[in-house]
Design a protein around this nucleic acid. Structure first.
Length: 897
RNA sequence: GGGAGAUUAGCUCAGCUGGUUCAGAGCAUCUGCCUUACCAGCAGAGGGUCACUGGUUCGAACCCAGUAUCUCCCACCA
């Protein structure tokens, strides 16, 4: 049976994934083992896999697979987020395509459509995770809007309301005119945008005589600079700085708003920056946060001229019904025509955009629900500062602290339907009742009335009936993050059943892997919720991944079209190849400049492993043969253990890409290029049984190290008959992860020299154009403690040496080289180029002398001797001795030439 | 405007407590090889004033100060 020359991922991946599922290897239930838990950052239920997910989930899978192999009870909880704005927007768009407008639908009907949509597209992203190899416990898949999780949201709301941490009030909020909902501060993305700054004339209204006199030579208008001319109809005042020399004559006067001729007062406030623009500010309380506050201070009317969808309403008097941006252009035109527009400048400024819909955010005054953050922020900050929750990389601690110390109340109501409806009930002029159900709300109303006047049972009955007919539930839903922040608790039913086996076992979870962009949105709030509802932070480590960018540093995004489809990549390079490619270019905590060539490298690596296997697989065993490779075997064993220490080290610091690179080099260089080459029998020769079984042993260990990174190929090879008959449960995915054993330092050190010897010989071959097939003679004049007898076979094989002898004198007519203080000679059949040789040696001597000089300078420097640590000085002395010995040998060589 | 981080080979990055693990790795490049595991490969080689300028020190990629460039986060200047 012949094996393909290249590894073909498509033949193996799905097969093994199905096998793992069948064997329930991903399944976790509480037992006596130590738990290792990760909850997935739930992707949007309607989303599709992008490169960010890919990176994120690869990392999680590596961590979870390693933990599983280490014998921990590994549990990776998957699920999706209902993503209210995003999903609702998609559903609305989908309906529109079918000619259905949301406003024509009842809430119930709309929800029906939405659920239908969710059922249809909801599973896609999770299916895609499977192709990546994600070993999630699918039996635990949760959805943030399923019944239990929704109940948790409502209970949480009630709990916080009772604590006084949730309140309702009129505030300036970030309004998304596209989504027609309020959004939180964190959902507003600021971007710098090229704009126009319009300089608009506001003519003065007639004032009193004396003012007229003093300002005779002054203009009869003032100029306002604004980026938003369409809001002039909402102006309530003009504000100047009282200290502004230029405008003393304006005090107490008023102006007319252009076009609509409404008279508004000129007020004074030091808030106004004299330097900026014209030093005059139009105050528009309804459409700017600062102006709103200024308005409160000066008791100005609030004139809201915008509809929820961003069009002008009747209050605007003109351009009613026009969109705000269209209105801006038109009004500029009108102003110009009427002589009110002085000039227009280009201007750059920061504008807020909705994270979800990308619409320009409109500051809007509205009645919303808020959640107080200050009390919850304190302990949440403490967890991170005292290290109970570690942020990786640590640089995020500062950012986290800054946010927590300046946290503002969280606007949690959204004017949407897709989500958990706010459990507030309104009845006549009563204060809203916060209750789980209408029935409970009515009972609450009854007990309120009880306080005022007792009710008979009959009266209560009448009241119930009446209230049931009139009571109305709040129309809004809560922010999606108001459910996501409960995720690490709610996925284990920690609200429904706070003392259940799962939550007690899995909570707090171990690692959270997520993007730094949602540190505040999500991570910080999860810590708050964890403390508030469980008294413990929800995880111990937060690994913040980088952002996936393209080769030239742009963030990968759908709109730029610079993001490859991860599924295509998997098709092309195999899941293992893509996973490796992903990790190769993701330094811990930094953004990664992704390029497809990394996947190629990953694929090549898989192929290398595959071919190493093919080699071993092809060997015949001759039971009568003695083991002639014990040196090589001992060396690789030590080398493996040495590498494993490094690998573990990197894992502990979450430096996965370095762990991977260490494994990569161990496999490619040490195992394939050195070990296998050392033990490889000559063509069509059999191998001895001891070497063979040692090699299989190593191969298994390597597969285990590789498995978290490359689950599919490792599982495929694991089951080859070469390893003997395996039981159905004996799989790489659950094989015991290697533990580092003894390391023979001396052997490793010797091998360093041996490798050098081999390299030097290969070098001589290549520079003298001697074919690798031509066997050479090698002599060594030993100056070190290395016993070359032990390495006779190894050197002979790797460098194709037919005769390797020790000599006590220099060999003439030979190419020579030095390894440490050991001299090697290769007798040459052709004449040695004496000049070239002399030049080479002279160069080396020169270098060594220079080196020696610098060492001598150090050693003769008294201050160095006084200040440096003894071991450093000792080291310098050794360097000196080494250099001197080498120089001596080389100079002798020069002589003998 | 405030804060954080970065700058090391063509590219992506390591470089822990200043001292031969101190200038490294992988990829790419160049030069040889179709050496029957692998051309998705093998064997070699080249490549860097460690952003710049000063300082501290016996000694600096590493510590300090300043400069430049870049990235990110936060912030209501019309």
């Amino acid at each position: 049976m012949s094996i393909s020359k290249t590894y073909n991922p498509r033949e193996t991946e799905d097969r093994w994934y199905q096998y793992w599922l069948k064997k329930k290897f991903f399944r976790s239930v509480p037992d006596e083992r130590e738990p290792y838990t990760i909850v997935i950052p739930p992707p949007n239920v309607t989303g599709v896999l992008h490169m960010g997910h890919m990176l994120n989930n690869t990392i999680q899978d590596v961590l979870i697979r390693r933990a599983r192999m280490q014998g921990k009870n590994a549990c990776w909880v998957p699920g999706t987020d209902h993503a209210s704005i995003a999903t609702e927007a998609k559903v609305v768009a989908m309906l529109k395509e079918q000619g259905i407008e949301k406003k024509d639908l009842s809430r119930e009907k709309f929800m029906e459509y939405a659920w239908e949509w969710k059922e249809k597209y909801g599973g896609i992203i999770l299916k895609q995770l499977e192709t990546l190899g994600a070993s999630c416990d699918w039996d635990r898949t949760r959805f943030t809007m399923e019944e239990d999780l929704s109940d948790a949201v409502i209970d949480t709301f009630i709990h916080l309301y009772k604590k006084g941490w949730i309140y309702r009030g009129v505030r300036m909020v970030n309004w998304d005119p596209k989504g027609k909902t309020a959004v939180s501060d964190e959902e507003v993305i600021r971007k710098e945008v090229n704009q126009k700054l319009y300089y608009i004339k506001y003519y003065l209204a007639p004032g009193n005589e004396t003012d007229q006199a003093t300002s005779a030579n002054k203009l009869n208008y003032l100029i306002i600079a604004t980026t938003r001319p369409e809001t002039i109809m909402a102006d309530s005042a003009i504000c100047i700085n009282p200290n502004d020399e230029r405008y003393q004559h304006l005090k107490g006067r008023s102006v007319y708003i252009p076009l609509i001729k409404r008279e508004i007062p000129i007020i004074e406030d030091e808030y106004v920056d004299i330097e900026f623009g014209t030093g005059c500010l139009k105050v528009t309380p309804a459409h700017d946060l600062n102006d709103y506050e200024l308005g409160l201070k000066h008791n100005l009317p609030v004139i809201d001229i915008l509809n929820d969808d961003g069009t002008l309403n009747a209050e605007a008097l003109i351009l009613v019904g026009e969109d705000r941006f269209a209105a801006r252009k038109k009004i500029a035109l009108l102003l110009e025509e009427s002589g009110h527009l002085e000039r227009v400048d280009d201007y750059k400024s920061q504008i807020g955009f909705s994270e979800r819909t990308d619409a320009v955010i409109e500051p809007k005054l509205s009645l919303q629900w808020f959640c107080r953050m200050d009390e919850m922020a304190k302990p949440a900050l403490e967890y991170v500062l005292n290290g109970e929750v570690k942020l990786i990389p640590e640089k995020f601690i500062n950012t986290y602290r800054h946010w927590m110390e300046n946290v503002k109340d969280w606007c949690i109501s959204r004017q949407l339907w897709w989500g958990q409806r706010i459990p507030a009930w309104y009845y006549q002029h009563e204060e809203p009742v916060i209750a789980r159900t209408m029935e409970e709300a009515i009972e609450e109303l009854i007990s309120r009335s009880e306080l005022r006047n007792s009710m008979s049972e009959v009266e209560k009955g009448v009241f119930r009936a009446q209230a049931a007919a009139e009571i109305r539930q709040d129309e809004d839903v809560v922010d999606t993050w108001f459910s996501s922040w409960l995720w690490p608790i709610s996925v284990f039913d920690g609200f429904k059943d706070p003392d259940n086996k799962d939550i007690n076992y899995y909570y707090p979870t171990n690692d959270l892997v997520t993007a730094p962009e949602i540190l505040f949105f999500w991570v910080a709030r999860m810590i708050m919720a964890g403390h508030e509802f469980r008294g413990k932070a929800p995880f111990k480590n937060v690994y913040l991944t980088g952002i996936v960018r393209d080769k030239i540093g742009r963030k990968m995004s759908k709109s730029l079209g610079n993001s490859p489809d991860p599924i295509d990549l998997i098709q092309k390079y195999g899941a293992d190849g893509v996973r490796v490619g992903m990790l190769l270019c993701s330094p811990a905590g930094n953004d990664l400049m992704f390029d497809e060539s990394y996947c190629e490298q990953g694929r090549n690596f898989a192929n290398k492993v595959w071919n190493a296997f093919r080699l071993v697989k092809g060997w015949e065993i001759d039971q009568s043969l003695e083991n002639s490779n014990s040196t090589a075997i001992n060396w690789f064993d030590s080398r493996f253990n040495e590498a494993l220490v490094q690998i573990e080290n990197n894992y502990h610091q979450y430096r996965l890409s370095e762990s991977l690179m260490e494994v990569y080099k161990l496999v490619w260089d040490d195992f394939c290029s050195w070990y296998l080459e050392m033990i490889k029998p000559a063509y069509q020769q059999p191998i001895d049984p001891e070497t063979f079984s040692a090699t299989l042993e190593f191969f298994e260990r390597i597969l285990k190290l590789l498995h978290p990174f490359m689950p599919f190929i490792t599982e495929e090879l694991w089951h080859d008959e070469i390893f003997g008959q395996r039981t159905e449960e004996d799989c790489c995915i659950v094989a015991a992860y290697p533990v580092s054993g003894a390391i023979n330092e001396d052997l490793l050190k010797d091998f360093g020299a041996i490798k050098q010897v081999v390299s030097e010989i290969r070098n001589i071959r290549s520079s003298k154009q001697i074919s690798p097939k031509e066997a050479l003679t090698l002599h060594v004049k030993v100056g070190s403690v290395i016993n070359y007898n032990d390495y006779n076979d190894v050197i002979s094989k790797l460098a194709n040496i037919s005769e390797f002898t020790r000599v006590t004198d220099k060999v003439s007519g030979a190419s020579s080289f030095l390894v440490g203080t050991d001299e090697f000679f290769i007798p040459m059949t052709s004449n040695i180029d004496v000049e070239a040789e002399r030049e080479r040696i002279t160069k080396e001597v020169e270098y060594l002398k220079g080196f020696l000089k610098s060492v001598d300078a150090k050693l003769s420097n008294e201050r160095f001797i006084q200040n440096a640590k003894p071991e450093i000085i000792e080291n310098e002395r050794k360097k000196k001795a080494d250099a001197e010995a080498k120089i001596l040998i080389l100079e002798e060589n020069l002589q003998s030439l």
